[in-house]
Computed example of a mutant assay.
Amino acid sequence: MGSIRVGVSGWSYDGWRGDFYPADLPRRRWLSYVAERMSSVELNGSFYSLQRPSTYQTIVDQTPDRFPVAVKGGRFVTHMKRLRDVDVPLANFFASGVLLLGDRLGPVLWQLPANLPFDEAVLASFLDLLPRDHQAAAALAARHDDKLAADRAVTTANTNGAIRHVLEPRHPSFGSPEALALLREHDVALVASDSPGDWPCFDEDTTDLRYVRLHGHTELYASGYAPASLDRWARRLRQWAGAGQDCFVYFDNDARGRAPHDAVALLDRL
């Protein structure tokens, strides 16, 4: 039987104050408030810039033991370099403090731009570079460049647990048999990305892990999920978990503050 983890993509949203967060709850306690009510969280600030080790240490301090924290890979790797020549950028990413999460580190998410089609050689080279456990990530992190000052780099691991990777492409060519075969060969999950028709929502099974991102079913990043829709996702998650797959689900419809409420509502159904 697989596990099911549900959370939100990010938690530092001022619009949630006085709605999901009590109005008098200090910002420094927002993450612990989320961790008390959900079973995982996705860090998305790491997509926009390299975080500091202090950010990851704060996450450790404010979450329970083995509370899985998915980490979103940097857009410099995915959107600017477009997966090419990313040895050093990957080293910088893993040296930025990710290793401090230890056993809390959940899947690492790599979101691709919608105008990036499947290229077998490029994707294969990228997947070959990804570290599959913490010691391998530490060895990679040690190759960081001077973009990270010595006091900002973490290049040692406190565990040797596995590191799982998931890919969120937004081009339909990633549903091809060749792309799916490559993901299966590298044991990488293909994200099911729900949106109002903006990107394909892949449903293919490429490993024993399922990763779902819910961006808003009728209005991107904004609309909430109706009870019937949450019921359908709950059924699918039970089916996947019943087949032995671990499931991670993150709500990204944060613009109007729906994400945390939908996450709690889905957890209630599970």
Rank of each mutant, 00 (worst) to 15 (best):
L90H: 04
R132P: 06
L101Q: 04
S125T: 13
L101M: 08
T156P: 01
R104H: 15
P89K: 13
R104A: 09
L109Y: 05
G106E: 06
T156I: 01
A141Y: 00
F118G: 03
A136K: 15
V154K: 01
V154Q: 03
A136P: 04
A149V: 12
L112S: 07
A91S: 02
G97R: 01
K147H: 10
A138K: 00
G102K: 08
H134L: 06
V98E: 05
H134P: 05
P107E: 15
D103T: 15
V154F: 00
L101W: 14
A124N: 00
D128S: 12
P131N: 12
S125I: 08
A121V: 08
T155I: 10
G106Q: 12
L123A: 12
D151E: 09
G97Y: 03
A136F: 03
V88Y: 08
P107L: 14
D119N: 06
A95S: 09
L100Q: 04
V88K: 08
A153W: 01
F93T: 02
N115V: 05
L100D: 04
F93I: 04
A136D: 13
A95L: 00
L99R: 08
N92K: 01
L129E: 13
R143C: 13
A142C: 02
L99S: 14
A124G: 00
P107A: 15
D133W: 04
L99Q: 02
V122I: 09
V108Y: 05
L123G: 00
L116V: 07
F118M: 05
Q111K: 12
H134G: 15
P131W: 03
W110I: 15
L127R: 11
A114R: 14
G102C: 07
A150Y: 10
V154G: 04
A95Y: 06
L130N: 03
D103M: 08
V122L: 09
Q135W: 06
L99W: 10
D145T: 08
A153E: 07
A153F: 01
D145F: 07
H134A: 14
V122W: 00
N92S: 02
D146Q: 14
A157N: 05
Q135P: 00
D145L: 14
L140W: 03
G102S: 07
T155M: 03
L130K: 01
W110N: 10
L148Q: 08
A150M: 02
A142G: 10
N115F: 14
F93V: 03
V154C: 04
V108M: 13
